[in-house]
């Protein structure tokens, strides 16, 4: 699974980042890199089955405490 993720991201880097780098679109490159690193981390965490906390739980807790059930 993790290999698959890595392969896919390698392909993505080839076809997403390299053209941006060549065209010198730095803001795009930076934004993309930030998002890319984020998504790669999440993907790897998911592929090794780490449980990532969901934000919907706290939100729903807050709302039920405010408005009641």
């Amino acid at each position: 699974m993790i290999f698959l993720v890595l392969i896919v991201y390698a392909v993505l880097i080839l076809y997403e980042f390299i053209p941006l780098y060549k065209q010198k679109q730095w803001p795009e490159f930076a934004a993309n890199a930030v998002l890319g690193v984020l998504s790669l981390t999440v993907a790897i965490l998911l592929s090794v089955e780490v449980k990532i906390p969901s934000p919907s739980k706290p939100i729903s807790n807050v709302i039920t405490s405010v408005f009641g059930k």
Binding site: V8, V11, L12, Y15, E16, P19
Partner: peptide
């Protein structure tokens, strides 16, 4: 190219 490539992926 990229559009096609997402298809390929």
């Amino acid at each position: 190219r990229t559009r096609m490539l997402s298809l390929v992926i």
